[in-house]
Amino acid sequence: MIRARAFTVPCRIAIEQSPAHFHAHVELEGDLAVHPGDRVRVHGDPVRVLFGQSVVFERTATVVRAGPLLRAWTRLAAYLGLTELYEVSFTPGSLR
């Protein structure tokens, strides 16, 4: 059995809910790259951000690295999912 490699790392969380922005970003310490199939779990209590607020705080996260098989499967599934966005038409004329 191949074990997934897991480790804990500090992270910075930025959440904003305003008329101009609505986002939540997690930055892992050291600009750690997250690859297809990897899992990241941020630890701590749930956060509530009221409309018009922006908060930034520090937490820890556990990163579980995907193995080669899961990584390849995730890339294939993403590629096949992307093809669903393509629209091909063989009818003459333009779409209105």
Rank of each mutant, 00 (worst) to 15 (best):
R39G: 05
R5G: 01
D45S: 04
Q53N: 03
H23A: 06
L50M: 12
A61L: 01
E27C: 04
V64R: 11
E16N: 03
V49A: 03
E87Q: 14
L76V: 12
W73N: 00
G67Q: 06
P46H: 08
H23N: 07
V49R: 03
A72Q: 06
P10S: 04
T91W: 00
D31M: 03
C11Q: 04
G81E: 10
E27W: 09
V63H: 11
E58A: 10
P68K: 00
A72Y: 03
R96S: 15
L80K: 06
V26T: 15
P92R: 11
H21K: 12
I15W: 01
T74Q: 14
P46L: 02
P92I: 00
H25F: 12
I13G: 05
H23R: 14
E27P: 01
L80Y: 12
A72P: 00
T62K: 03
R5K: 11
P19Y: 11
V56L: 10
F90Q: 13
R65E: 15
F51I: 01
H21I: 05
S89F: 02
D31T: 11
T91D: 04
L76E: 07
V9P: 03
Q17P: 00
W73V: 08
A61R: 11
V40K: 01
P36T: 02
A77C: 09
G67L: 12
L95D: 15
A6H: 08
A61Q: 08
S89R: 08
E84V: 00
V56K: 11
L82I: 01
G67C: 07
R48E: 13
H43D: 14
E29S: 13
Y79W: 14
I15M: 12
V55K: 10
V88Q: 00
V63G: 07
S18I: 08
Q17I: 02
M1L: 12
G37W: 13
R39D: 13
V40I: 07
L69Q: 14
L50F: 08
S54R: 15
E84G: 10
R65G: 08
V47A: 15
D38V: 01
Y79H: 11
P19M: 03
H21A: 03
P92V: 04
G93K: 12
E29H: 15
E58V: 07
L70C: 06
A66C: 07
R3F: 06
S94T: 09
L80V: 06
D45E: 13
F90G: 10
I13Y: 07
V47K: 15
S18C: 04
H21T: 08
